[in-house]
Simulated assay, not measured.
Amino acid sequence: MSEPLNIVILGLSITSSWGNGHATTYRALVHGLSLRGHSVLFLERDQPWYAKNRDLPHPPYGTTCLYADFDELRDRFTEEVAQADLVIVGSYVPDGVEVGRWVVDTARGLTAFYDIDTPITLAKLVHGDYEYLHPDLIPRYGLYLSFTGGPLLSWLKRSYRAQRVEPLYCSVDPDLHSADFGPIEYDLGYMGTYSEDRQPIVQELLLKPAQIWKEGRFAVVGPQYPETIAWPRNVNRIEHFPPSSHRRFYTSQRFTLNITRREMVRAGYSPSVRLFEAAACGTPVISDIWQGLNSFFRIGEEILVAERAEDVLRYLQETSDAERNRIGERARAKVLSAHTSIHRAIEVENHVRRIRGGYPRPRIIHSYG
């Protein structure tokens, strides 16, 4: 490893996983970077809905600071941004365009945009929605990191003049996810915040099987589901689990369900945090199908795919325990070999090395007041 980097990350949230998938991604990445010896300062806008639901108010890796608004951000952290070796601005950061322009104008080191929502971001840009990223800002970042890989990255570079585009997929923290199975409580479970475009698939691949197989045991975990949804009696509805409880939830299932947002399905090559988490726990995953899925897991051997309720019921009722365990073990081995927080930290290091031609001497800053 080269000399340590001084990194500043401005992200949606690291302290609260409520209603977002960003927090677990940032936690894994910051932990991985810290284990590799880098100094990481994470800056988060203090939002009331996250303040009420902070499941990790003081992350034990790196340094986390909250700020009230853009003015406070600029007043308190201009020096840190200016002197950092790498400054990363994430998607959905409040006032993201203003923050991004300030970062690229201020930073003397490498700047990067980390798009955890690439297909959604690009759809917003096409429709003139510049909530957190403006087309004119894209070529000003030295690096565009994307949760989504595949052909979409070449299109982004051609259409928006991005200097360099690289995938930086989500990852798992092996310290938090292991295959320590306890009592099996559910035949099939699903974890995900309510999304209008995902709900028809939840209906087809979980609620409909639950209605048909009344002896089966099912669970749905996640916030913001409308009260109008009619849950079958054999579906346990849980509002939220903090990341510290994810392992227990996944290992209490015979199978778990992965469902992908519509824009991610269209783009392909968009694995979710929950997909890697479940696999890391050794729980066999039943997933919807999208282009590029087989580049992460071998279909039929490391992951199962379903399009209809009948597919799900066949897996639940006909797969032997021995085969189910083999699928889970293979998926876990794949994740631990390629998709941990350390893998992602090394990828960040390599991107900086290639762009900057080696690391500069670190400029460690301790004035986070």
Rank of each mutant, 00 (worst) to 15 (best):
P60G: 07
T118C: 09
D69Y: 07
R101G: 10
D117Y: 08
V99C: 03
G90P: 01
I88N: 01
D69P: 07
G96W: 01
F70M: 10
Y67I: 07
D105W: 02
D85N: 14
D105T: 07
D117A: 09
R101Q: 15
I88F: 04
P59Q: 06
D117H: 10
G62E: 07
Y92K: 12
E72T: 13
W102A: 03
V103I: 10
T106M: 05
G62N: 08
L110V: 13
V104F: 05
V93T: 11
E80I: 01
A82Y: 09
P60H: 08
A84S: 15
A112I: 11
Y114K: 06
V104I: 14
F77D: 02
F113A: 06
D105A: 14
Y67A: 06
D75A: 15
P94A: 09
E72I: 08
G109L: 07
I88D: 01
R76N: 12
I120A: 13
F70K: 09
D71H: 15
V103H: 01
I88S: 02
Y92F: 15
T111M: 04
P94M: 06
L66V: 07
I120V: 15
D115I: 02
G96Q: 04
R74L: 10
D69Q: 08
E80N: 13
A107Y: 01
A112G: 08
A82K: 14
E80V: 05
Y67W: 09
G100M: 03
F70L: 15
L122H: 03
F113N: 03
D69N: 15
A112H: 02
E80R: 09
T121M: 14
A112D: 00
L66S: 12
G100H: 03
A112P: 05
F113K: 00
Y114G: 01
L122R: 05
R101M: 12
T106L: 04
I116A: 14
G109A: 09
V89R: 06
T63I: 15
G90F: 01
D71L: 06
T63R: 13
A84R: 06
G62K: 06
F113V: 08
F70H: 10
F77C: 04
E98F: 03
T63K: 12
